[in-house]
């Protein structure tokens, strides 16, 4: 039996899809089998970030409505063979997902894969609730700024109230993933400090992903950043987060501004 992870945030544009793809790819690189499920019906993006947009034949809604088998709809990644995608439908809306349909699909995926990663749509409505419904673990993606943190707090409240696990009185593992962290702005105090974010959300931290060009570039060429630029700080942050999800203990450092001794000297000399 695999573990179902929901990647959620409340607020849009904080990096849910990018993080789902990167963490999914990082887990798959360790040899585990991974299914990425795009719950953002009507605004699908995960296929683009994975570079699979031209290979989508059947989607999540087709499977729920019985027009395709799950095995027909799953798209295997060409670079990492243990990574699979179940795409969302772009032509339907979120009402096309039914409670029972989602339960069936997530249930079958859980039997086949080590990890099922549900990429939640933004908001706190039906789509987001369905994405978190069957999760065993939640990754709450937050940017270090007040509106994102407040929305994440709201989502954590829903995770405590609306998931199947918590309704049955079981505990649900929840982690915070801070994305788009900018060390320069943090040093100037223009961003919420990591400690403040964690104090407000009172959840354990699973990773800090710095804001970087390599993440944007990777999305644009349709590759998770852990594949596109594995030596970048962002890729390493995601790879470390994946290891922590697997239960390994990996040291976590807050990214700082890197300035070489010589760089400083030259600038001053000039």
């Amino acid at each position: 039996m695999g573990t179902v992870i929901v990647v959620t945030s409340g607020k849009g544009g904080v990096g849910k899809t990018t993080s789902s793809a990167a963490i999914g790819a990082a887990l798959a690189q360790t040899g585990d089998s991974v299914a990425l499920v795009d719950f953002d019906v009507g605004l699908r993006n995960l296929d683009l970030v994975l570079g699979a947009e031209r290979r989508v034949v059947y989607d999540f809604v087709n499977v729920i409505q019985g027009q395709a088998k799950l095995s027909q709809a799953l798209i295997r990644d060409k670079r990492i063979e243990t990574l699979h995608l179940l795409a969302a439908s772009q032509t339907r809306d979120k009402d096309a997902l039914t409670e029972e349909g989602v339960e069936d699909v997530v249930g079958s995926l859980r039997e086949t894969f080590d990890w099922v990663i549900c990429d939640s749509p933004a908001g706190i409505e039906r789509g987001a609730i369905l994405a978190m419904r069957h999760a065993d673990m939640a990754i709450v993606v937050t940017n270090p700024e007040v509106s994102s943190v407040r929305d994440s707090d709201r989502i954590i409240g829903l995770l405590d109230a609306r998931t199947r696990r918590t309704e049955q009185g079981e505990a649900m593992e929840k982690h915070v993933l801070i994305t788009r962290f900018d060390p320069t702005r943090a040093a100037r105090g223009d961003m919420l400090a990591i400690d403040d974010v964690l104090e407000i959300l009172s959840l354990p931290l699973i990773g800090i992903v710095p804001e970087s060009q390599s993440v944007l570039k990777a999305s644009n060429i349709g590759m998770p950043v852990v594949l596109a630029d594995p030596s970048s700080d962002s890729a390493r942050a995601y790879a470390d987060a994946a290891r922590r999800i697997k239960g390994e203990s990996v040291d976590l450092a807050v990214p700082t501004v890197r300035r070489s001794l010589f760089g400083g000297l030259f600038r001053r000399a000039a």
């Binding site: 706190i124 709201r154 405590d160 407000i200």
Partner: peptide, 27 residues
Amino acid sequence: DRPVRSGQTIFHPEGDVIVLGSVSSGA
């Protein structure tokens, strides 16, 4: 015995409310 998160309301008309954690913005 848990934080009161944004969007949540604790309503107890009969007596005191004791929150062991924090009360978030929007709660």
